[in-house]
Simulated assay, not measured.
Amino acid sequence: MAASRSARVAALAALALAFAVPAAAQTPTVELQPADPGSAVVEELLVVARPPGPALWLVEKNGAKLYVLGSAAPLPHQLKWDSPRLNRALDQASLVLVPPEASVGPMQVTKFFLTGGGGVRQGFGKKLEDRLPPDLKERFVKARTQARRTAIPYKDWKPAVAGFVVLSDFRQAAGLSEAKPVSTIERMAKAKGVKVKAMSQYRLGPVLSAAGKLSDEANLACLRDALDEIDYEAPRWNTLGTDWANGDIASVRARYSSSAAQRCLLRAPGGAGLLADQIGQSAKTLSEALERPGVTVAVVDLAFLLPSNGVLDRLRAQGATVTSPN
Rank of each mutant, 00 (worst) to 15 (best):
F304V: 00
A24N: 06
P307E: 15
P181D: 14
A147K: 01
A317Y: 04
A14D: 15
P181G: 11
I279H: 11
A189E: 14
V42K: 10
S103M: 09
T27P: 11
L204T: 06
R187C: 10
G70L: 13
E31C: 11
R224M: 06
Q33K: 13
A3T: 05
L306T: 00
K61C: 03
L45V: 04
K197R: 10
E101C: 09
N87M: 10
R88E: 12
Q318V: 03
A189W: 12
V48T: 08
T239D: 07
L266H: 06
W57E: 05
V196T: 10
N246Y: 04
L306Y: 07
G273Y: 06
A198Q: 13
K111G: 08
L114H: 02
W237K: 09
T321A: 13
P293W: 01
P74M: 12
G70K: 13
R88T: 14
D231K: 12
R253Q: 15
G175S: 14
F140L: 05
P52K: 05
G163A: 04
L290W: 00
V252D: 09
L290H: 00
D313A: 05
T242E: 10
L17V: 03
Q108K: 14
L56Q: 01
V141T: 12
A298I: 04
G116W: 08
Q172K: 12
Q201D: 05
L176M: 09
S209P: 00
Q146W: 10
A3S: 06
G241P: 06
G319D: 01
R8T: 00
S71N: 05
I249E: 15
A303T: 07
L58T: 08
L136R: 01
L90V: 11
P133C: 09
L220D: 07
V165E: 10
V311Y: 08
E233C: 13
L136W: 02
E129R: 04
I185S: 07
P76N: 12
A254F: 15
Q262K: 12
V42C: 09
A11M: 14
N87P: 00
A13I: 15
R263D: 01
V120A: 01
D130R: 07
G270P: 05
P235Y: 11
D301T: 07
H77R: 10
A261N: 12
S287Y: 02
A143V: 04
Y154M: 02
A191F: 05
K111E: 02
F112T: 02
N309R: 15
M1N: 03
G280R: 10
E288K: 14
P307V: 08
L290D: 00
S308D: 05
E186R: 14
L114F: 14
V47G: 06
V300W: 03
T145S: 13
P307G: 09
G310F: 15
D169Q: 07
D228Y: 09
I279T: 12
K61Q: 15
E288L: 11
K213G: 02
A64Y: 06
P34Y: 06
K137T: 03
D248K: 15
E101P: 07
R144P: 02
F112A: 04
A55T: 13
P325W: 05
Q146L: 15
S257T: 15
P37I: 13
S215Q: 09
W237L: 07
F170A: 03
T110M: 06
